[in-house]
Design a protein around this nucleic acid. Structure first.
Length: 582
RNA sequence: CGGGAUGUAGCUCAGCUUGGCUAGAGCGCUGCGUUUGGGACGCAGAAGUCGCAGGUUCAAAUCCUGUCAUCCCGACCA
């Protein structure tokens, strides 16, 4: 492509609306333009990168045995009502009524396609002999994000590869899951992305039933816990800690239990400030309803409760924070003054709670707290659990390392769904004994836009983007230094034609601009290999070849230049391919 | 949805506090000329209903009310 004939609106200045590097650079390099909050146009350069990432995803999905199809974005709301996801999605689901003749139809724009695909497969697959089957599509998804942000990282409309597997047995599900996991590792490696697979919240099947693929990045929205030894990585929502259950013994020389007046101090911060003690000295008592049974959950004041861990510890299906009426019933006081001493419900506690000597807790009485609270003497526990979010410095659950917390951008997710959708939508098969069973499903998503945004976010320098060869909009950028010189343009045209004939994606900056101007734009858009033709070099019979990441260009005799470029690209491709796990 | 900020030319911003001549700058754009190895220079030009609506006033980019949009923090995110 000749630069003069395409559309690459680069910007020297940083648009004031863009805050994070990927957003700034994608705007400045002419990859995207914003239409409105959460909706972006992909300009020619950005769209080429997107399509290259898409092609890699498609290729690996095909190799992993998935078959491509294409489903409608427009979907009948009825499907979401049958799976209960109309209310689960709530406001995120874009849905509306349309007039069709004399009737109204209620439609949704697909936020994902479990419903449509389960309905489809359920209608047409009926025997275990036809299973397993994995289908996928690459399609625009729609979600009414309450707050789109971070440029292209969180938008209301985005390109997603979504795959769905249908199997007759858990073994079949496990098999597809492993193949998809492996395909994902290859996809991100081929795209040149550094990605960390982490354990994620997994829903009904449990165990290793869900992994997210995270790009470590300071601006990532997710928090990821990883072990210093590399033995463990998990989403913060999911991450276990390696802490052990503490011995439940009353501390020596405990202070006397004392009731103190703490007017209007209902939060940890307020109580800590009022009594001039550290939050680590406080115990917060959260009242949950676990399958409608009230339970008091004790967490150290400075820690964050983790609802998933609490739900598992209680062996409950659903838990939610109790309403004010329930809290008053079990504590005898309004919300904000709950404590374990004398509470009228079961108590479970985090490992760190019994370690607090002379703790401060609510007194189960309006405007009062207790000080000098000690386990064994003032309240009883039989055991403790891991009930809080992991923290920096916690022991690793799988090794002798410690845990650290990093931010990440979720770029992929593999998930063992089980039979939730096949039961709701009646997608059943018959086994060899003619017994009917719901199909066992898995789903596997990749955010294609996030591959691009993630690369922009993590691979750039002060001057601009640095594309990996496999996803770069163009592989080679030809720069004729001065198009007023006939020799320069003739040679550039020749190179342009021959490189294209060799199957290389080449962009030629044929604009009538000064060299410095072209160099700045070249660094900004980050094409991997740059070939400079003209000027001093051409007088000496050489052209200059330079990787985006090189400090200095290499001089190559004109006669050898084309072969050199073809060889360099081939070598880089081979080197990149060697980094991809087999 | 709660909190904060910002809307003036394609981009970055000044002017607003204390209302007052014809609304400014840099970059970009058009024409001519000179330039040509890291975002050139000169001359001449085009381009803005000052987000929108209403109000106050002799007079509003500036003050008031409402509204819309965008960004940031938080809540939310199968």
């Amino acid at each position: 492509m000749r630069w003069s004939q395409t559309f690459i609106p680069t910007m020297k200045e940083i648009p004031s609306d863009a805050e994070i590097p990927s957003h700034q650079l994608m705007l400045r390099a002419g990859l995207i333009r914003q239409l409105m909050a959460g909706a972006y146009t992909y300009l020619p350069l950005g769209y080429r990168a997107l399509r290259k990432a898409e092609a890699i995803v498609r290729n690996e999905m095909d190799k992993a045995g998935a078959v491509e199809l294409f489903m409608p974005a427009l979907q009948p709301i009825d499907l979401f009502e049958r799976t209960g996801r109309k209310s689960a999605f709530g406001n995120v689901l874009i849905n509306f009524h349309l007039q069709r003749g004399d009737r109204k139809v209620h439609l949704a724009l697909g936020p994902t396609h479990e419903e449509v695909v389960t309905d489809l497969i359920g209608r047409h697959i009926s025997s275990y002999r036809q299973l397993p089957l994995t289908v996928y599509q690459i399609q625009t998804k729609f979600r009414n994000e309450e707050r789109p942000r971070f440029g292209v990282l969180r938008t209301s409309e985005f390109l997603m590869k979504d795959a769905y597997s249908f199997g007759a047995t858990l073994e079949q599900l496990d098999d597809v899951y492993k193949r998809m996991y492996h395909a994902y590792v290859r996809i991100f490696a081929r795209c040149g992305l550094e990605v960390l697979p982490v354990e994620a919240e997994s829903g009904p099947i449990g165990g290793d039933a869900s992994h997210e693929f995270m790009i470590p990045a300071d601006n990532g929205e997710d928090q990821v816990v990883r072990s210093t030894t590399g033995a463990y990585a998990a989403n913060l929502e999911r991450a276990e800690t390696g802490r052990k259950a503490a011995p439940i013994v009353t501390a020596e020389n405990p202070a006397a239990l004392q009731k103190v007046h703490t007017p209007r101090a209902t939060s940890i911060e307020a109580v800590a400030k009022f009594l001039k003690v550290a939050p680590t000295q406080l115990v917060k008592t959260l009242i949950f309803k676990a399958d409608d049974r009230p339970v008091a959950v004790l967490i150290r004041g400075d820690h964050d409760a983790n609802e998933n861990k609490i739900r598992r510890a209680l062996n409950a299906k659903v838990i939610e924070l109790a309403d004010n009426a329930t809290i008053e019933k079990v504590t005898g006081a309004p919300t904000g003054f709950a404590g374990p001493v004398g509470i009228k419900c079961d108590i479970i506690a985090d490992h760190d709670v019994p370690l607090i000597k002379d703790a401060v807790t609510g007194a189960n009485e309006l405007d009062h707290h207790l000080t000098g609270v000690n386990v064994g003497r003032d309240y009883q526990l039989t055991t403790t659990y891991d009930l809080r979010n992991a923290q920096e410095g916690d022991p690793c659950p799988r090794s002798d390392g410690t845990l650290q917390i990093v931010h990440g951008i979720e770029v992929g997710h593999v998930f063992k769904l089980g039979t939730k959708y096949s039961v709701a939508l009646g997608a059943e098969f018959v086994d060899e004994k003619e017994e009917r069973h719901p199909m066992i499903m898995g789903c596997y998503g990749i955010g294609i836009n996030r591959i691009i945004a993630g690369l922009a976010e993590t691979q750039h320098d002060a001057n601009g983007l640095i594309w990996p060869l496999a996803v770069a909009p163009y592989e080679v950028l030809l720069i004729p230094l001065n198009i007023a010189e006939a020799e320069t343009t003739q040679l550039s045209d020749k190179f342009y034609g021959e490189l294209q004939a060799a199957g290389i994606d080449v962009l030629m900056d044929d604009r009538d601009a000064r060299p410095g101007f072209k160099f700045k734009d070249a660094d900004l858009i980050g094409i991997p290999l740059r070939v400079i033709i003209g000027g001093k070099g051409l007088k000496d019979g050489v052209v200059e070849v330079k990787w985006r990441t090189d400090a200095e260009a290499t001089k190559v005799p004109v006669a050898e230049a084309i072969q050199t470029v073809i060889k360099l690209i081939a070598e880089r491709k081979a080197a990149d391919a060697a980094k991809v796990p087999a």
